[in-house]
Structures are given as C-alpha cells and as structure tokens.
Write a protein that binds this DNA or RNA. Sequence first.
DNA 1: GTGGTCTAGACCACA
DNA 2: GTGGTCTAGACCACT
Lengths: 247, 247, 247, 247
Amino acid sequence: MAASKDSFGLIPVRSLATHELVLEQIRTAINLGRFQPGDRLPTERDLAEMFEVSRTTVREAVAVLEGESVIEVRRGRTGGLIVREASLTRKEYVQRLRQSRAELLGIFDLRLAVESAAAGLAAQRRTAKDLARLRRLLRAMGAIETSARESEEAGGPSSFSRFRGIDSQFHLAIAEAARSPRLAETIVAARGAMFHPIGAVFVKIEPSAHELHEAVVDAIDDRDHDRAAALMGAHIEATRATVEAWL
Amino acid sequence: MAASKDSFGLIPVRSLATHELVLEQIRTAINLGRFQPGDRLPTERDLAEMFEVSRTTVREAVAVLEGESVIEVRRGRTGGLIVREASLTRKEYVQRLRQSRAELLGIFDLRLAVESAAAGLAAQRRTAKDLARLRRLLRAMGAIETSARESEEAGGPSSFSRFRGIDSQFHLAIAEAARSPRLAETIVAARGAMFHPIGAVFVKIEPSAHELHEAVVDAIDDRDHDRAAALMGAHIEATRATVEAWL
Amino acid sequence: MAASKDSFGLIPVRSLATHELVLEQIRTAINLGRFQPGDRLPTERDLAEMFEVSRTTVREAVAVLEGESVIEVRRGRTGGLIVREASLTRKEYVQRLRQSRAELLGIFDLRLAVESAAAGLAAQRRTAKDLARLRRLLRAMGAIETSARESEEAGGPSSFSRFRGIDSQFHLAIAEAARSPRLAETIVAARGAMFHPIGAVFVKIEPSAHELHEAVVDAIDDRDHDRAAALMGAHIEATRATVEAWL
Amino acid sequence: MAASKDSFGLIPVRSLATHELVLEQIRTAINLGRFQPGDRLPTERDLAEMFEVSRTTVREAVAVLEGESVIEVRRGRTGGLIVREASLTRKEYVQRLRQSRAELLGIFDLRLAVESAAAGLAAQRRTAKDLARLRRLLRAMGAIETSARESEEAGGPSSFSRFRGIDSQFHLAIAEAARSPRLAETIVAARGAMFHPIGAVFVKIEPSAHELHEAVVDAIDDRDHDRAAALMGAHIEATRATVEAWL
DNA sequence: GTGGTCTAGACCACA
DNA sequence: GTGGTCTAGACCACT
C-alpha cells in the first residue's frame, strides 16, 4: 500500500478464478453464520444460478469445502450440501488465530472506523422499518442468551453459532440503515476478513455485548448520531479486547 | 448488499481478468495524480515486473488506455507511455459527474469514516518521520497554491494537476502514519473510486483546504486523536460540499 | 508498377503481420464458398496447426472476423467458429461494389489471362482423374441449378452460396489439371481478390455459365488446347459482362 | 494450391520481415537490370525514404547483399552502394539453375499467360506515347546487339547486362500499355521470380528475340490484339526453349 | 473438447 | 532500449 518512491504504488495483481470467488462467498456466508451447522446449502443448481456461473464452477468450490470438512456432501433424495460442526477444538482455533494476530487486530481499526460511522449515519437516516428490524434482532439475540445461560452446556456451541448468525444480521442491518452502499460493502468485507482466519469458531458471548447492542439501537431510535457512533465504537473496542485476551 | 431472505447474501460473481486489474491500477494511479500529464509511465517491461504479470497482460491494459486517449504510445528509443492532458472541458466533466452523482456522494460517507479514523490513529501512532513527511507535503502544496494565485492563468490546469498529486500523497501519508494496512487499503480504494467517474479532472482548490490540512497536521503533531479526526472530518465534509455544489 | 525514373521501381514496403495473413486466408476461403454460412471453421487449435502459427495469432484474426460479423464465436463443448449469413442486402452489396468498380473490372483482365491459359494447359496435361473430377463438379452444379429453378425461393441465397462454393472448386480443379503451381496460385489470388470487395455475396447464376462450363470440359476432354482456352475466355467475359451490368 | 479435403486450401503462412521485403525489392531491381554492375544504388537515406522504413531496416538488407557479394559498400565521400559484377561462372549458374528447373519452367506457364494477354490488351489500349516508348526501347536494344556483335568480347557480360535491363523495361512497358495494374503486377512478380534462382546472370541473347520484339510492337501499332498476343507467346516460348536447352 | 486467458521468452522495427 | 509481434505451452470456464 505504501507508495514507495520507485513503484508508484503499483502492486502485484492476482486474478481470482471464478471458483475461488464462489468459494469465498460460501465460506464467508458460513463464517458469518448465515448457514448454521446442520443447515443445507442451496442445491448446486441454485448456487450456480445465484452466482451466475456454471455448475462445474460451483462444484469446484464445493469440492474444496468438502475437502476442508466444512461441508458434507450427501447423495440421493435426502442429500445435499450439509454444513458441518466446526471440528477444531477451541485450543486449536486460538493457535490458528495467534498466527494472524496482527492481521486480526488490524481489521478492528477498520471495523471501528466504518461501523461507528455507519451507526452514526443510521441514526440520521434510519426508517421506522429499519428500527423495527433492529429491535426484532435484539430480541432474538436476547432469547438465545437466556436459553444459553439456563442450560449451560445443553445447546453449547450450537447456541453460540446461532448467536453469531443473528449478530451478523444485526450489524449488517445497521449498515443498511445507514443508506450507504459503499460503507455497507466495506463492513461486509471487514467482517468477512475477520472471520476468515477464525472460521466458524464458537465465540464466547461477551457479557457487555447485549447491553451495548441495545444502547446503540436506543441511540439510533433517538436519532442521536454521535451517541450511536460512540456506543458502536465502544462495542467494537470491547470485542477487540476480548479477542486480544485470547491471543 | 442486502441479504435478501432467499439468496443468503450470495451475489453473482465476476472474475476480473488479470489485465483488468492492471488497468484499474494504472488508471487509478493516473487519477490520483501519481503520474502527471506529460509523465512517462514505467516501461511495459517494468510494469510487468511490478504487477508480476507477463508483458502481454500489461499490453492489454495499455491498449485500453490508449484507446481512451488517457495515454499516448510513442515508439523508439525515446518513446514510452505518455500520460495525456485530460481532454474534456470542465463543463463536460460536470456533465459526466452528474450521471454518477449518487455514487460519488456515497463515496464521501466512506471517506469520512476511514480518513477521520486514520487521522485519529495517526495522531496516536505517528513517528517523527511521518510528521516530517506531512510537513514537507504541506509546504509543497502551499508553494503550488501561492504560485497559482500569483499567475492566475500561467500554470493553469497543470498546477491543479500537480496539486492533486501532492494532495493524494498527503492523505496517503496520513493513512500510513495510522499504521493500519487495512485502513490504508480502504482509503486508497475509496479515493480511487472517487476519481473513477471524474478522471484526471482539474479541481478548483477549495480555499479552506490548506488551512484544514495544516490544522490536521498540527493535531497529529500534538498527538490529539479526537481533534485530528474531527478536523479531517471537517475537511472531507468541505470537499463533499464543494463537489455537491458543482452537481 | 510504373518504374518512374527516380524511384527505380522501388516502392514502399509494408510487412504484413502474421495474423493479417491468417485473416486473409480465412476470409478468402469463406468468400470462395469453401465454408458455407452455418458451417463450423476448424477449431482454433486446428487452424493454428494448418497455418503453422500459434493459437494467439489465429485468435487475433478470429477477433477481427467476429468484429465484422463474418463469423460467430460459440463457446463450450458444442461451440466453435460459425460462419454467419451475409448480412448485407443485395442493394447494399452493389453499392459497395461500385466503389471498387475499376479494381473489380481490372481483376477480370488477369482472370481472363490466367484462367484461359490454365484451361488450355489443362486440355494438354489433364489426367483421366482430373476429367472425372470436373464431370462430377459439373453434375453437382447442374443439380443445384435445377433445384433452384424449381423452387424459386426455397433454397434462395443458400443455393447461390452452395453454387459459388462448387463453382470455385471447378475453376480450381482446372487450375490443378493444368499442372502449373504458379498459374494455380495466381488464379486463387485473383479469385480471392475478386471476392474481396464483394464478400460472400449471393450471385445470380448467369444462364450461360453451365453450358460454357460443360463446353470447356468437353474441350479439355478432347485435349483441344485452343478451344478450351477460348471457351474459358468466353465464360469469363460473360461473367465480366454480368458484373459490369450491376455496376 | 490443391484444396485437399481436410485442409480447405488453408496453407501455412510466413510473415516476411520488413528487411526481407526491402532485400527482395533491391535484389529484384538488380536482377531485372535496373541497376547495372558498377552503378551506385540510392543512398541508404534515400532507400529508407523510398521504402518508407527506417535506415536500420535498410541497413539489414544491405548487409545481406554485401554478404552475398551482390553489392560492395564503399565508405567516404566517393562511397555508396555499388553493384558488383556477377561473380559466378556460367557453369556455376547453370548448376544452380538445374536445381530449380521445375520451378523455372513452371514460371514460363505463367509468363506465357500474362504477357501474351498484356500484349493483346496493349494492342487495344496503347496510346501514341506508349508506342513511341516501345520503339525507343527497340532501338536501344538493337544498338546493343549490334555493338555486341562487332566486338565479340569487348563489352562482354556488360553488354548482356545492359541488354537485360532494357529488355525488362520493354516487357514492363507493354504491361503498362495494357492499362491493367493487376496484370502488370503479376508480370513484374513473374519476371522477378524467374530471375530469382538465376541472379543477374549473363544471358545469351537469343537470335530471334529482336525480330519478335519488333513484330510484337508492329502488331501493337496495328492494334491487332490477336497477333500481338500470339507473337508475344512465340517470343516467350522461344525463351523457354533457350532456357530449357541449358538445363 | 471448445473458446478465453495467461505466461515466459524471443526477435523485430524504430528512434 | 522502447513498443510491436510471435511462439509454445498451460490452465480455466463453459456446454
């Protein structure tokens, strides 16, 4: 990125093959919790249609994910592409995370910038519908947290996983309420990048998360730009601290 | 961006050919003023090395830029790839800008977020060397502005063009001082996107720009995170206002 | 051609790029009817082998032909390079022909010289096999003419197109029977040049053509040099008259 | 030229480098006698201008000709590119000719076709000026023949060489009088090809040549198409017979 | 098994 | 020592 005197900021390019793009989208969707362990992905035929590519290309991506044990391919009438439970232990994950520590913490600089800004803009530009959606997502997360606390181990990882899915939806809903496609796009990319080294890891729900989520939504409700931005910033800083503590 | 219920946020992919990536990098470098009208780009062989691609691939990109009259190709020992003067009149530019008005203003949401954050982080993380570089760039911009004011027409567009080149260096220097590669990358992308619909247009230097630049650097000098971020925000808002006024 | 005193007959040279040579051969083969509308050209790999050039070079020629809508490029296993129907109306063709009237009529001087000579030599040098081939081609042309007359519109342009293909084969078969490579080469070049301004135009079959074709073959059968040459001359003069009438 | 069933008449291409084209033009001009032994070629600078190429390219061609001892490069004020005497003995030439016997005789088929046709057309289309030029060339050839006969060896090869130069001019003058650029072009190419394997060989002047030349011009003068064509045909057949006798 | 793209290296024409 | 062109081989996306 540095514009060193001789290179004029021109840096090596690498063209991503179509199946790599498909792979990344599916992988990110799983990492963001849009597909939960046990869920079935759309059929290859549908995926090909969504991505506007041929089935061959989808199959190449699917083959990689199967090779990584991220999904399981079941044949026959009841078959399909099934998302598997994350197979690494938490210890193994932390191991992997440490290897991309700098990268991971760096991403928080970006998230802090764009998600705070998005929360601020959302406070100014949100519609009643946006607000209703945020409240609905808050309730859903609350329910998961409660049930998780009650049966400490019962749902275990699975409840974390569901939490992460809804958490992602929540952050993206704020990005949408900010009515700024570029900003939203950057947020998605940053979140995707954050989960990339992690995979669909089970994340301990940090205690403050739910409270801060609610506070952000209240600020957005009040159309208070600065408070919304500040609270979102605090939330992300708290997450950064939690992650940093693991490493 | 919207994760509509059925599509799970999966969107059509389009693999960018290597030569398209090369094209965009060269185009952006010109738009950011890293190459001025009359400048020679690196030779095709050097570009190929920088991008880590074959000369063939570079040539495909070069052919497009030549077709668009962005560069001129001269043969022989004294030849090379020469950046041409922007050929559109200001009126024609404004015309074109209007067609991408929404896109253009949307980019400012992103710039505001990431460049303010970068300025804030720069205040915390900058080295003495970063500071010296910023001061140097400020002086260079001051000199251009002074000479431009004195001889209203003399340097004309050319002085604007040089100004834009240094202005870009200034903003990127702040991004670097923030020590956050992801943030810097996003800033480069946002600035590149901003100039995309514009091309290497000559831009009226807004009066407040120089003062705000200096104020930002002073805040960075003082290691004052919030003031640096706020002033950078003000600068970008002022630029947005200027652009909006044209449209 | 004039050897003006000062220039010693030395004229500017222009090196034809390999892909231009490839282009002209393919274009000429289509114009001569060796490939009919709807036909598939050999694959790019096969063309490269035939021309003894790299696929890259073939592709440059293919790109031009696609740009001119002479061929259509279809991808995938069932794809290939498909010759398209000529898209101009007859009126448009005549328009274009008029612009190269002098060039076109001039070519007939050359055709008259070389094709008459070839017919004469063929009468002297032909083998039984040559003769059988000529008779076979005569029958094929007769069949097309008959069917075209019966169903005035049915086959329409398509029957003209097939006729032209076989007509070309007929004339080249005589050139081959003359056992003179230089002469044959010149005949091919002249016929190619003749069709160049025309493209794969549909040509009204002139009434006398078939009779004269038969008479020429009879003379060749009889080993009558002068009669063969004279009849071929008459045939070409008749064609010239037909073309001249359009202009 | 055979359109073998599988190859569709498509044959290997070979792109001629610019310096090869230059080389061939200079070589042919020498072979046709446009430049005589001892003559100076135009300067490299002038040749570059005539051919519309750079001096470098001319120099490459010149280097080859020098390497073949066809010309001699003299430096300094009195220098230039000097055409040398043919250095092979007649025996060596005949040796070389035999190797291209078939090629050589084949060329006569083409010459017979196009030069007879040109003579015929010249009879129809010649102007008074064309005629005067032909008569002038006849006289020049007559003068050389007379002087050559008188001093059998004196001028020796040199008088043959001059004869060949004027003979070429004569045949090309007829081609021009035929007012058919394509035909003229083919004649030049055929004559160039004929001399190619020979080089600037000294040719025994065949006895009948002068008489037939005169007879052809008389026929052209009388506007007698058929007689002109027939006599030119006879002349070329006689030349073919002479050449065949050597082989 | 087609066309679409890329690579690494080479030679040429030009100034 | 620049851009212009070609080669031989490879992998990819599509049908």
